[in-house]
């Protein structure tokens, strides 16, 4: 049985990197006494895969990994058992059963994510920046200097910004995420500063990821659904 675990990572835990979070969960799953499935060989490893790595320093209330389990257990019990093993700052939000097969792998599904970029006190852009968000988004192109594994150069990030709104001392965004177009919220915030003709101060904001989505849409449009909603509750 494959289950999808949704969890949050906050507080001091934001300083623990992605690989260490994987190791952390492998140990937590063992402590929780879940009957995880393992690969074969001299060094068997747990069959698990994370949806989208979260950078060090970013908090989240919408992280996911898929885990292969032997036997069955209810969603409620799986959640409780895992939560009994969590360190402060980590919390398991839900555990749901998802279909087997490569196409339904969390990592392959990731299409978009919600982010909140909150400015630290005194570090928000100067002036009435909130009123400029709409105009910023209404540009035909938003060109930024982007360096990827393959190339470096001016890229238009506008198509990959699905939503951008101002909130109190914060920018709320929905961005393309995953293996095809992975747009980082910091890049959008920087582009916005540039648009305002300003330069962000170092460590100006805290980034938070709120949710990760799959796209069930077709050529006519996106249909974003949370990764959680693709699973069903195990009674």
């Amino acid at each position: 049985m494959k289950v999808r675990v949704k969890f949050s990572k906050e507080g001091a835990m934001k300083f623990i990197g992605h690989l260490d979070i994987m190791r952390y969960f492998q140990k937590a799953i063992r402590r929780a006494g879940l009957n995880a499935a393992f690969s074969e060989g001299f060094s068997p490893h747990m069959l698990m895969s994370f949806a989208a790595p979260l950078g060090v320093g970013i908090t989240s209330t919408g992280e996911y990994f898929d885990l292969e389990l032997n036997g069955s257990m209810s969603s409620a019990e799986l959640t409780d058992r895992l939560n009994a093993q969590m360190a402060e700052g980590m919390h398991v939000i839900s555990v749901r059963k998802v279909p087997d097969g490569k196409a339904s792998k969390a990592m392959a599904l990731v299409a978009a994510a919600d982010y909140t970029v909150t400015f630290y006190e005194g570090k928000a852009p100067a002036g009435e920046w909130e009123k400029q968000v709409e105009a910023f988004l209404n540009q035909e192109q938003i060109l930024v200097w982007r360096k990827t594994k393959r190339s470096e150069g001016e890229k238009d990030i506008r198509p990959w910004i699905y939503k951008l709104e101002a909130a109190e001392n914060a920018l709320i965004m929905q961005l393309s995420t995953g293996s095809v177009h992975n747009l980082k919220p910091e890049l959008v915030a920087e582009a916005f500063y540039k648009y305002l003709g300003q330069e962000p101060q170092p460590f100006a904001w805290q980034v938070h990821r709120g949710e990760i989505y799959a796209d069930l849409g077709d050529e006519n449009g996106r249909k974003l659904v949370t990764l959680e909603s693709l699973g069903e509750i195990i009674e």
Partner: peptide, 26 residues
Amino acid sequence: MRKLALNDEILLKIEKPARYIGNEVN
């Protein structure tokens, strides 16, 4: 939640901030 002795700016600048935050299991 515990208040850390080092601020975010420092923790994000140094190598392996996990060395200094405690909170480990057990």
